[in-house]
Amino acid sequence: MTAAAFADHLRRDRLRSAHTVRAYLATAHRLIAFLGRHRGESIDDDILRSIEPADLRAYLAQRRSEGLTNASAARELSAVRTFLGFVKGVGAAIPRVQAPRVKRGVPRPVAPADARALAEDASDAHDVPWLAARDLAVLLLLYGAGLRVGEAMGLDAGLLPLGEAITVTGKGNKARVVPLLPVVRDAITAYADLCPYPLGKGVVLFRGAKGGPLDAAIVRRAVRAARGRLGLPERTTPHALRHSFATHLLGRGADLRQLQELLGHASLSSTQIYTAVDAAHLMDVYRAAHPRA
């Protein structure tokens, strides 16, 4: 196994960002260096394939002694699992180690880095490439475009090939146009290219393992498992990703009316309640926008 091969796997097969590739490679190098000291021998692929949970617990203990927080340690463990999964190959068992507990009460919304980590971890849980690509695409879509999970499940494959925006049908059969970030567009395209089932107008875009429509319960279950592995709070749900989309846009000065349209809300009050931005910021936006404020 070479670092270049692992990096190519992350970029090509797992669609990881450049930042994630650098972070995962750094973790892989740290793990190999630690195992070399821990075992007193040179580390090759055979040794990596045979490491035990005790080895990983010792590694995490050292990283914690270096000042790593619980949340960072959980993400490091996720990177280790991804690396070992690559070395061991598809379907191989990965040593199971309990992720460090993260103190409850982390403020909403989900941080951008946590949202990306959640999507990547859910993707990494699959051995089947097209299912891994599907879960990455779905979760990046929820966070990057603010869709309800039901809206994402109902997307028609006829929207392929993707442009810079898609039309989404929301509550009350109301349609709205939602822009797509390049990373979201690339993830959906990669999934579509790998999907073994026909994708075209009149069939749903996101498919289950047996070819039927993807059930929202499967998405929720994948998020629940990923947040457990990463030590994220229980309120990290698919809907929380939509909430985070709204909060982050508003926090960066987005207009409330425009945000209302992006979210598909019938009233502005729904947008204000949903985003849960602090009152002071909402007042700043109001004063800047209202001519009589």
Rank of each mutant, 00 (worst) to 15 (best):
D127M: 05
E151P: 03
G91T: 05
A18C: 05
T189G: 02
L180M: 06
L136P: 01
I166S: 07
L147Q: 08
P129W: 15
L232F: 15
M153C: 15
D114Y: 13
P238R: 01
A99H: 06
L10T: 02
A145S: 15
P53I: 10
A190N: 05
Y143H: 04
A133M: 09
S267T: 05
A125R: 07
W130P: 00
A26W: 07
A192M: 03
P179N: 09
L10S: 04
S72Q: 02
K171M: 08
F6D: 10
L241N: 09
V110D: 01
G200F: 14
L48R: 03
L268I: 14
S123F: 09
S42K: 09
A216H: 15
A117P: 03
E261R: 02
M283C: 06
P161R: 10
R207S: 01
V138G: 09
K201F: 07
G158V: 01
L263Q: 04
A288F: 04
R148T: 02
A93M: 01
H38E: 08
L249A: 10
H9D: 12
R235A: 12
D186H: 05
H29R: 15
A254E: 15
R14G: 01
A279T: 11
A293L: 08
G253Y: 14
G144M: 05
R148I: 02
Y24K: 00
A225Y: 11
Y274A: 04
A5W: 11
A73N: 04
R134E: 15
L194I: 05
G208A: 14
L241D: 06
T27M: 14
L205T: 11
A113G: 08
R292I: 02
R224M: 03
F34G: 04
K210C: 06
A288I: 00
G208C: 09
D121C: 12
T237A: 12
Q258D: 05
D44T: 09
A73D: 06
E261N: 00
A4K: 00
I47E: 13
A61R: 13
H248A: 14
D45S: 15
R292E: 04
L180W: 08
A18H: 13
G36R: 10
G36F: 06
L159D: 00
R30Q: 15
R39I: 03
V90H: 12
A280S: 12
V90P: 07
R16N: 04
A217V: 07
A137G: 07
G228S: 13
Y197I: 00
R64I: 11
L250F: 09
L232T: 10
R39P: 00
